[in-house]
Simulated scan of single mutants.
Amino acid sequence: MTWLLFAYWYEPEAPSDPVGLVRIWQLARHLTDLGETVTILAPNYGSTRQQTDLRIAGIPLLPVPLLRPISYAIGSWLAGVALALRRTPTVVYYRWMDSPHPLVLARLLGCQCVCEVNGEPVPDWDAARSRALTRVKHWLARQTLRRCDRVVALTEGLRDLVMRRYGVDPGAIIVLPSATDPKRFRPEDPREARRRLRLDPESSYIGFVGSFYRYQGLTCLLEAFAMLRCRRPAMRLLLVGDGEAGPSLREQAIRLNVAEAVTWAGRVSYARVPDFINAMDVCVAPFRGDRGETSPVKVFDYLACGRPTVASAIPSVASLFSEREGVVLVPPDDSIALAGALERVLEDPRWAADLGRRGRGVVCARFGWAGIAEQLRDWVGKGQGASAHADSCVL
């Protein structure tokens, strides 16, 4: 099959392979490995141009906030038409955006339209801005999603949401969560990883990888770390990433008197993330309770590296993982519970190692990008040449 993959985001200064774009690149790579022809229509950023192993049509954007998404919609639609004149696509696949232009193109070309919903189409923080605009966005989402041939939801919660709120046929939906690359993310000796990163090889590290945004729950992690430091003064915290909450988190670390024990690694390319994860004794995903639906790549990558993981028991994480799968779940926004869980893992190295082995086994068996891409190809292939919906499926 021939795929046109539409993906809009605004992140011009991102590293060459920012974590937020991993799903796009990995699906394209593994679909290509399966013999599919995939072209990504993406903003013409430096990070886009560096994906030299992929077919990418870079779309220039106007440097004005209101006009950026409009310029992408117009530019990518015209680019899609130009590509279709050379070879008619079988599938138009797009990550949800506030524009129906991929659906319009698919209908014009008579091919399947598949929409990926990787978050709430109208998130609560967006809904608080304007009631009138929120109603328009909900109407647009309902009209668009119901007319797509297929919808890919990253979590069961998102599947339920698009059925309940937007009236999508259950038979048109598949749940395909995030995944990892077990060949790239594999266990290594923590001391060796620390030496490569010029960290103290003999120290113990609690670690986090991701963007520094409110929903990540990093204020709770710092509070939990401060509690642990009272009992384990040699413990260190390794934070990999950056974002709008960075300055306030640094101020919080100073107030809690733990600043000297926190290593701020900054944003790193995705290719370097395995070293940082392997340098950690225990990894953390401390999402806030109001995070909403998510399928965090970080948890899959932690587990692929065989690292014991402590995560907030938000529905989209708890539906996939438990201690049996290598993840210790704690109530979100509870720094005391988080500190207690971290200490449990650190106090019992044998149990921690067993958690790591179980976690890697689970992701290798169920959550590799190659398997996700194959599942997607086979499911979409059922409807090739027709717009009839396939049976609902949960991976």
Rank of each mutant, 00 (worst) to 15 (best):
M1H: 14
L27V: 03
T88Y: 04
I74K: 06
R198W: 05
L103H: 05
D301L: 07
S16T: 09
D354V: 05
L303Q: 03
L140D: 00
G340D: 14
I56F: 13
R194P: 04
R164Q: 13
A339G: 10
E116S: 06
A28S: 13
L176D: 03
F212V: 08
P102C: 10
A224Q: 07
A7F: 07
P331Y: 12
A127Q: 05
L338Y: 11
R29F: 02
T37K: 14
S99K: 07
Q143A: 09
W351M: 03
V273S: 01
Q143D: 07
Y302K: 03
P286S: 07
D33V: 08
R195Y: 09
Q26R: 15
A339V: 09
V317H: 08
G241Y: 02
V310L: 04
C111M: 07
D334F: 04
W351C: 04
F287D: 05
R184M: 12
D378Y: 01
N257A: 13
E202G: 12
C393V: 11
A285H: 02
W96G: 00
V19H: 06
G361Y: 06
K298W: 01
R324G: 11
P308A: 04
E11T: 11
L5F: 15
R366T: 00
E120N: 11
G35Q: 13
A245P: 02
V258F: 06
L103N: 07
T144C: 10
L66P: 03
P102D: 08
P177R: 00
W369M: 01
A388W: 14
I74P: 09
M163D: 11
L342R: 01
T88S: 14
V209K: 01
R366V: 01
A261N: 11
P296N: 12
D354S: 15
V168G: 10
R129T: 12
R55Q: 12
T263M: 06
R164H: 14
G207S: 03
L161F: 06
A42L: 14
R250D: 03
S319G: 07
R86G: 15
L54A: 01
L342T: 05
V317D: 05
D281R: 13
L228P: 00
P121C: 05
H30M: 02
S295N: 03
V327R: 01
A245M: 14
Y205M: 06
R87E: 15
I254N: 11
A341V: 01
T90L: 10
V273K: 03
A365V: 01
N118K: 04
I70M: 15
D200C: 03
S47A: 12
Y8S: 10
D301A: 03
